[in-house]
Amino acid sequence: MAENPEGWKPKILGLVCNWCSYAGADLAGGARMQYPPDIRIVRVMCTGRLDPLFIMKAFTDGADAVLVSGCHFGDCHYLEGNYKAAKRMFLVKSLLKNIGLDDRRLRMTFVSASEGAKWAKVVEDVVNVTHELGPSPFNRKYGELKELV
């Protein structure tokens, strides 16, 4: 594993559904579970809202990783949104591979409103993997292809 550039801190975008994962993240907070601060959350009502273009925009903007988190299958507040989101994320993952981004930079997880501990673990995990992968080639300050974007 190559050394990561000095001063680089991972830029991780979290796209999180209001009913399950956002609530689970709040629960982690209530229980004071600690995890690394490298993630920024954008709340949507359902992961089904997520257009694949949002993810691609995030990566072109230089995100080092994107975490999409929704309800468990069968528990979606809007019945099926998470299934559709999962299908879209598979598509985006293969797109990432095609443009030379390690597809581990995109991750979809399922965290319910009562799974605060799981949320903390998921974030910790994503941050660790991102450290392993290093800055995205499109990262605006540290990416090797930053001139292209």
Binding site: V44, M45, C46, G48, R49, L50, D51, H77, Y78, E80, G81, K84, A85, R88
Partner: peptide, 8 residues
Amino acid sequence: GCGTCGGF
């Protein structure tokens, strides 16, 4: 308002 259509 789930947005599944909007995301598509």
